[in-house]
């Protein structure tokens, strides 16, 4: 979609704006390119530009027990955390549509967004103090999973809320007039409409939790590391190409999953739009 009204009204300021933006995009590309290129060096230390080309650090990372364990721990934490966050974020978004009082709605909305503002280090210290008191929560990942879930709830809440705000508000009263109980309405009216947004929220929550490093600094049991924590430790020791190889691998995985997901969902919304247009004209 070309945006000629905006382009016309911006006039000759268009060029400087484009130049500023293109220069700015370098801060996104350059660090990533450096990480990727340094991972294929043949040397045993990181050097830029890389010397030669080899995949030895990739095979090194993929066969190293420490990196593999860290990856598995992160997968576990992110899966459990995502399930909790999706469940609670969706419940909150559904509850929001059923509140009539403007003040209550605004408070609920704030409550579900505010975890984004919590400074992770201070929160991690708090969770750590809890684990000092409660022996049940020591030496396992339960507290880490709960804490990460809290930090991810806002993303799910935002996505599902935006889905619900596009829904036809007359559907629920209609279902209720026809005698459907509220659990049936949630199951048959609300959920089918927001399942795509729940999935989007889940993908986002998973990515957020998988990447989060600060809580795991404080809350992983001794000897257990999540992937970002393993990277943090490795970046504070001597810099080996294994670090950038692992970074490249996990980024590629994220780009494949998230890129694949957004292609899939774009196609779905495009198809839905076509269908609804057809239905409207028919």
């Amino acid at each position: 979609m070309t945006d000629s009204p905006l382009r016309r009204s911006i006039g000759w300021y268009r060029m400087p704006i484009l130049i500023i933006a293109l220069l700015t995009s370098l801060v996104f590309y350059l660090p990533f390119l450096v990480v990727v290129t340094t991972s294929w060096t043949q040397t045993s230390f990181i050097i830029f530009p890389p010397e030669g080309f080899s995949l030895q650090s990739y095979t090194g990372v993929l066969t190293d027990q420490e990196w593999r364990d860290a990856f598995k721990v992160s997968l576990r934490v992110a899966s459990v955390g995502t399930v909790i966050a999706v469940l609670l974020g969706t419940l909150g978004a559904l509850a929001l549509t059923r509140l009539r009082s403007r003040a209550a709605r605004s408070w609920i909305r704030t409550l579900f967004i505010v975890p984004m503002a919590i400074p992770p280090v201070a929160y991690a210290v708090g969770l750590y103090s809890v684990s000092v008191q409660a022996e049940l929560l020591q030496d396992n990942l339960a507290l880490l999973m709960l804490g990460e879930a809290l930090l991810a709830v806002p993303y799910v809440f935002v996505m599902v809320s935006s889905g619900l705000s596009q829904a036809d508000p007359a559907l629920r009263p209609v279902a209720s007039t026809l005698g459907a109980s509220w659990p049936l309405i949630v199951w048959r009216v609300d959920l089918p409409m927001i399942v795509g947004h729940m999935l989007a929220g889940a993908v986002f929550a998973f990515a957020v939790i998988f990447d989060e490093v600060v809580l795991s600094v404080f809350l992983t049991p001794i000897g257990v590391k999540t992937l970002p924590l393993q990277m943090l430790t490795a970046s504070q020791e001597e810099l080996s190409p294994q670090l950038t190889a692992a970074s490249t691998l996990v980024s590629m995985l994220a780009v494949l999953l998230l890129g694949g997901y957004s292609l899939f969902s774009n196609r779905r919304t495009a198809r839905a739009r076509r269908l609804s247009r057809k239905a409207a004209t028919a």
């Binding site: 670090l243 970074s247 994220a254 998230l258």
Partner: peptide, 11 residues
């Protein structure tokens, strides 16, 4: 958006 803060900081 898709790469982690950790990776970007290492970069």
């Amino acid at each position: 958006l898709w790469t982690s803060v950790m990776v970007r900081t290492i970069g």
